[in-house]
Computed example of a mutant assay.
Amino acid sequence: MTAPAQTPSAAPGRDPGLRGHRTPVLVLAGVAVVALGISAAICYGTGFGGWVLTVVLGLILYLVGAFVAVNRYEGRRAARDRTWGVLIRSAFVLALLPLVSVVWTLISKGWERLDLNFFTTSMNNIGARDPDGGAVHAIIGTLEQVAIAAAITIPLGVLAAVYIVEYGRGRFTLAIRFFVDVMTGIPSIVAGLFVLSFWVLIVTPWFNNGQPTFSGFAAALALSVLMLPTIVRSTEEMLRLVPAPLREGAYALGVPKWKTIVKVVIPTALPGIITGIMLSIARAAGETAPVLLVAGGSDAVNINPFENNQTSLSLFVFQQAGDASRFAPARAWTAALTLVALVLILTIAAKLLAGRNRLRR
């Protein structure tokens, strides 16, 4: 006896319960237009708010109207799904707006002094009515201070994290982790005061005939205090994410523990470690208070970080923003744009270097 042929509705993969009408795009567009119109009428008609409140209220009205429309065409489950999708996308746009606004403001206002004179001259002998003057002294100071702080902090931070994850046991490890967590919340001015009271006022007089000395190296020490907890915590988390079978496989082959850490664990976690290091460098490059307290600031170029006052881009921005000259704000904006571009270039270079090393392995 021949089996009856299946109808299209009963064919496999064609369950009509899983398929339904899609809400027309024109309906959703109409809901958006109506919601924005009602929102504008309420806000501007009553004079209660501007375009920001209009957009927010329009989004709320659109969510309500879209829920009703989708519920009619596709059902309650699809309506809830569509509503949450709009909320998630709106949260993403809302989180992206401040970043876009900052970048646009920096570019639009920092473009005015983005010339060769800004990158080849300093503020030495520049008066209030002089439109020239640049930030080469601040750029040199930032590069030297951040480089010294990174040279001090990166080995210490990575080794401390390796000890905590691979070797640490008992109360000593708990004490290290506790103090690292405490250091994470230290304000930058406290780090500057610590270096001022210890290095500048106690140590430097031994080498300068009893006179305390400001220097870029002192600023680098203060920045290293701020960088250390970030590097330790980020490196620790990255090392913990390395799968245990990688370590066990190396141990099974007779590889010593130190070589397993150097050849297996750290290379595997290297991209995350690089990210944490760049976050700490970005924070250090943008700090003003420590540099002001222990480096003093300077209008002239000082390529020696161990003697005399030195400035940085963040301190230069702070000083120019408070200067009475009408040419100072343009310098401040261009210096801020330069600082952001410098951190971006360093981050991209570090990522490319980490990716290249990973490909070679």
Rank of each mutant, 00 (worst) to 15 (best):
A3P: 13
T23F: 07
A29H: 03
G30Y: 10
W51G: 15
T54Y: 07
V64K: 06
V64L: 15
F67N: 10
F67C: 08
V70D: 06
R77S: 15
R77I: 14
W84K: 04
W84S: 09
I88M: 10
R89K: 10
V102W: 04
W104N: 09
S122D: 07
I126W: 04
A128P: 02
P131Y: 03
A135D: 03
I140M: 11
Q145W: 02
V146T: 15
A147K: 09
L159T: 09
A160M: 11
G168A: 03
R171N: 02
I186R: 01
S188A: 07
G192Q: 03
F194T: 06
V195M: 02
W206H: 13
F207A: 15
S215F: 11
L226G: 02
M227E: 02
T230M: 07
R240M: 09
P243K: 08
L246E: 06
E248P: 14
Y251H: 14
W258H: 12
V264E: 12
V265W: 02
L270G: 00
P271S: 01
G272I: 04
I273N: 00
M278L: 07
A289R: 05
A289V: 04
L292W: 08
A300K: 14
F306E: 03
E307Y: 07
F316L: 07
S325W: 08
A332P: 11
A332Y: 07
T338D: 06
V340F: 12
V343Q: 05
V343A: 12
L346V: 06
L352A: 09
R360F: 07
